[in-house]
Simulated assay, not measured.
Amino acid sequence: MTDESASGSVSRRQFLTAAGSAGAVGLAGCTQSGSGGGGDGNGGLSGTIDIAGSSTVFPLATAMAERFQTEHSGVNINLQSTGSGGGFANHFCPGRTDFNNASRPIRPAEEETCSENGVTPIELTVATDALTVIVNNDNDWVDCLTVEELAEIWSAESPPSTWSDVNSDWPDQPLELYGPTDASGTYDYFIESILGEEGPGHRQDYSATEQDRTIIQGVEGSENAIGYLGFAYYSQNTDSVKALGIDDGDGCVEPSLETARTGEYTPLSRPLFTYAKQKALAEEHVAEFARFWLENATSQEIVANEVGYVPLNEEDQQAQLERLETAIENAQG
């Protein structure tokens, strides 16, 4: 992988645009080495950390990695945006990465695959997201969708082909849909919260991508488009697309950090995770990065202002740190 640091002069908006399109980034320190912690004379750590998984968590992981490497220039962090499921299946559970970011919990089948390969996943909650439904800025017929309307639009059972098929007051224009692939945790969470696990499933006649920036571009480019993605990418593109409120039976609620924090934005508020490989925590540079992430998970500046998610509160942070320290002790003992 090409090693490429995001310049401090580059805005988070520009970085999300570039990284969201590329799907991978190498955040290299001044000194590189193979896996295995050691002194480097700058922060005392060196080695490589490999991270794959959720595109939703990707910008948060990137922000943490950038700051960690400011203090530990000998640590090389490779980040890939593969989708939660793609990360578990192709990278983490086969033992190829040290962390897997995820926008939904690991599944029993994934845990079984990890176990077969000697990988013990340690679940760490790192933030809260408000999954956001977006439409084109020129869409003047809808500002809010009920959960039922949202389910109808995306259901595989008799999927509507026009906006007027959903609501006769809306234009007789074709629905153009953009969203994540079935390797994405966002896709899985959308099915769980909107379509139902036992429902007819998610329609497949839509433009599917692992790159959230592509969803933004697709919706921005067509008056008839609709899509969904993590709040961080919407928050960096508020001039490009319009977010819809969601009515879960108690009136319309717009996605925001505040409505996600209070739990008012239902059912699309969700926890975000990173999963650490316990064996990797035996290496000091990996353990220290995990600690660093959680120690900064309450940061309003990083998590909310820079990336666009809800930070952990101190109680939740302490619970996650205790879980991590237990895993580190087990790995290093």
Rank of each mutant, 00 (worst) to 15 (best):
D172S: 15
I216W: 08
G41W: 11
T238Q: 11
C144D: 09
V166W: 12
A127V: 08
S46W: 01
T209E: 08
G34V: 11
G37T: 08
S33G: 15
G87S: 10
A130V: 10
Y233R: 03
S222V: 03
A280Q: 01
E152I: 02
S73V: 11
L145T: 12
T120Y: 09
A24R: 15
E66C: 12
A28H: 04
N117M: 02
D250K: 14
T31I: 10
R12E: 05
T214C: 01
E258A: 12
Q320K: 05
V147R: 03
A28R: 12
R12V: 05
R213Q: 15
I51Q: 01
S158M: 05
S115F: 12
A327W: 14
H202G: 00
E110V: 06
V142G: 03
S7Y: 07
E71A: 14
E148C: 02
A287W: 02
V310F: 07
T120V: 15
I216H: 07
D98C: 05
T97L: 05
V133G: 04
I194L: 08
G29L: 06
T274Y: 11
S73E: 14
P121W: 14
S158P: 00
C144M: 10
T186S: 12
G95S: 04
P174A: 05
E264G: 01
P160H: 09
E325A: 04
Q278R: 15
H72G: 10
V166G: 07
C30E: 14
A28E: 13
S54T: 15
G218A: 06
E301V: 10
E295K: 12
T266E: 14
P255H: 07
A282Y: 04
G43T: 04
A225S: 00
N313M: 01
R261H: 07
L16F: 09
E112L: 12
V75Q: 11
E157N: 14
C252Q: 01
K277H: 10
I191M: 05
L177A: 00
N76K: 04
Y189M: 12
R107D: 06
Q80R: 14
R13Y: 04
S299K: 02
N305E: 13
D247I: 00
S115E: 15
R96M: 08
C252E: 12
N90Y: 03
G83S: 06
G38D: 05
T259K: 08
Y228W: 15
S164Q: 13
L175Y: 04
I216K: 06
S35G: 07
S103Q: 06
E314G: 01
R213K: 07
G41F: 10
L79T: 02
E288V: 13
D248I: 02
E288I: 11
A276V: 09
I216D: 10
D169Y: 03
I191W: 10
T62Y: 13
N296G: 15
S9N: 11
F190S: 00
A183K: 14
T31F: 13
P159Q: 14
N330T: 13
T113G: 03
E315K: 03
S269D: 11
A24V: 08
I51D: 01
V307R: 02
D143Q: 09
G87L: 14
T259R: 07
G41Y: 11
N137M: 09
S164H: 10
Q318G: 03
Y275G: 08
S54N: 07
G38Q: 05
L268K: 09
S222F: 02
T17F: 14
T128A: 07
F231T: 04
T298K: 15
D188I: 06
P160W: 12
